[in-house]
Nucleic acid binder design. Sequence first.
DNA 1: TCAAAAGTGTTCTGATTACACCCATGT
DNA 2: ACATGGGTGTAATCAGAACACTTTTGA
Lengths: 302, 302
Amino acid sequence: MSEMQSAAFDPLDPPKRAITADVVVLTVVDGNLWVVLQRRGDGADEPFPGRLSLPGTFVGDEEELLETAQRVLRDKVGLTVDARQLSRSGVYDLPDRDPRMRTISVAFVVLIAEHDHRTFIDTARDHGQLYQVSKLIDGGEDSQIIDQREPMAFDHVDILTEAREHVRVLLEETDAALDLLPPVFTLTQLREIYDAVWDASLNPGNFIKRVTRIDGFIEQVSPDGISEAEFPSSPIESDAAWMVYESVPSFNSVSTSDHAGSGAPSRRLGRPPRHFRSAGSAKLHPPLRRPGSYFSRPTSQE
Amino acid sequence: MSEMQSAAFDPLDPPKRAITADVVVLTVVDGNLWVVLQRRGDGADEPFPGRLSLPGTFVGDEEELLETAQRVLRDKVGLTVDARQLSRSGVYDLPDRDPRMRTISVAFVVLIAEHDHRTFIDTARDHGQLYQVSKLIDGGEDSQIIDQREPMAFDHVDILTEAREHVRVLLEETDAALDLLPPVFTLTQLREIYDAVWDASLNPGNFIKRVTRIDGFIEQVSPDGISEAEFPSSPIESDAAWMVYESVPSFNSVSTSDHAGSGAPSRRLGRPPRHFRSAGSAKLHPPLRRPGSYFSRPTSQE
DNA sequence: TCAAAAGTGTTCTGATTACACCCATGT
DNA sequence: ACATGGGTGTAATCAGAACACTTTTGA
């Protein structure tokens, strides 16, 4: 059978387009979800001068888009991440999304832990490159009347919105939340990650029971970092120093020490928590669904 | 702040790539999932001569990729579908996936109902363009030893594999199953769609209870097509002809009438079923999960 | 009367949620 | 002693699954 041809294009010389990979770098600090943005230049023929934008660049000749995203992170952001931490979140192809030329963008999301990239996050904060995701998407916290969003370049607010939803699903179905934590963490730290990304207030007790039931997700470690399958719930004989990676209260550190709810999780108060690390499996069985996805009646956790 | 540049590309003249939209046309006939494929030509400089491939073409200048997919369906397949029925299922960007040039493909999936496109399906079957998805992906049914898959061109078997998984999730979370049925259908017809796409054998009684509980998914209609909110379960007073769109046993119609399990659903045997139509809402609350996604223990429905 | 298909009822299991309560530690 | 945060127990509610059973038709 002869192949039907669309008659519009020569298959030996089809039209070519500009392709970019844009990267949404997300992190949780101080109980909030932050994104790394750059500010566009003020050149005369630059579109969206002075606007906030996601880092991105054009795909190379012999390069997968995932590698392009890694290159963007290395060259334009200053981050080195594993390929497995990057997740494709969307394709953006409206013909007029870039006023200069026809540009199709593929968006990637990466979650970085405050602990693993402490110096980067401090530097980005000092340069004003960290923005609260909820304020960019929904507007300010008390913006019932006035929308105080700062507008982003191109359709990057759409990319950010879909990236946040993508990450919320990732936290339901995979162990992506561990990318936002140090190698050893407590269940409270893990719950605060889910609270921040889902914009939830999960019940601490119920969270412990749900998350420890998922097989292959997390495993308890002794204070010195050795995993123990049957580690006792109350470490009575432990007097050694706990090898805990603490969170730094880098934001809101204006010495008003008791208004930021979940600023410094490990300040040696109350019963000492157990410590956990990743148990290896990337997919959660069963998934850890957001509040309200099971029951249809209204709940207080939603 | 000066914008960092990757130094590899001129932002005013970035490298350009060929972009295509490939379409995975799926339908359920005779209890199986089928895909529409084309066979590549035997030209000397054609890659993958004679291989099976998904229909696709290059994106136009002022055209979204979704519109490209619609154009492919109209010009190369001979189908006219609504834009809402098309769903993006993946991006394929390996540098060497097309031996001719660097080509990045975006895949779309569309589900067509046997009833709505009966002449098209008959024509496609006569031209040998319909293939069973499970045989292309997994091999033949009894291929424990011999893999009798016919190889597909490019990475189209990967596209097809991810498209099937995409559709399986679509049937969990949206009313996409209704795209595979006529406007008025029975619960048995709907269950056979889920059985075919999920490769499941859902319990008929449990399926009825689950699916009728989902608010806004389907609503019962009287035999003449008028919806009734409180339609009685047993239509005692009905003697009029039922306006039912019946399935045609177009495949396996070799007169061995009792071996193809779910060939012709409406053959006037047993208790007459109720009839339903779409209730409008695209997203299902709660979703209709596949067997085994809730319980962790092994089940017989899986 | 019998088979076949549609639909209901019942029971068991298990997940979600709410909330009370206990445990361990610093001040 | 007391506050604070970590963690367990328990009960109510609801969903998934298995399966027996009833209903309604054609043969």
